[in-house]
Amino acid sequence: MTLIMIGTWYLYVGAAVATLFIPFGIGRLDENAQGAWIFRPLLIPGVLLIWPLVIWRCIVLWRGEEKLDRHRMPRKRQERATLVLICAIPLIIVTAVALRQDPDTLAQPVLLEAAK
């Protein structure tokens, strides 16, 4: 199945990125990681899952293109996500309850032998 195959290859590439990034890349990019090894295996699942983001951040940091406003929080994004949550929850519940079929109100099963 295509989706599973894509997912598998995605994880393979993630494993390759992790093999390079965790032993070699981390210490060069983050001085707090230099000489700290025990925590690194904890990062493997993260690299496997978000390796495109890891590569992008490595490029940004290696090129020294880090924006200086890195302390600013994405407040507008959070507001948008909050509004979607506020609208989606009642909508989903109302739809689900409205469409719910109560088995007791449906036609009762009839034993065919008895109906004869």
Partner: peptide
């Protein structure tokens, strides 16, 4: 969960990390 370690906050930068963790909203939906 996999990106909850302090390293990720520092490596991704606070705005990127926070944006990533806003995915908790679609997850709940």
């Amino acid at each position: 969960a996999a990106t909850s370690h302090d390293f990720w906050l520092s490596f991704l930068s606070a705005p990127v990390w926070k944006s990533l963790h806003l995915l908790i909203y679609p997850a709940y939906i």
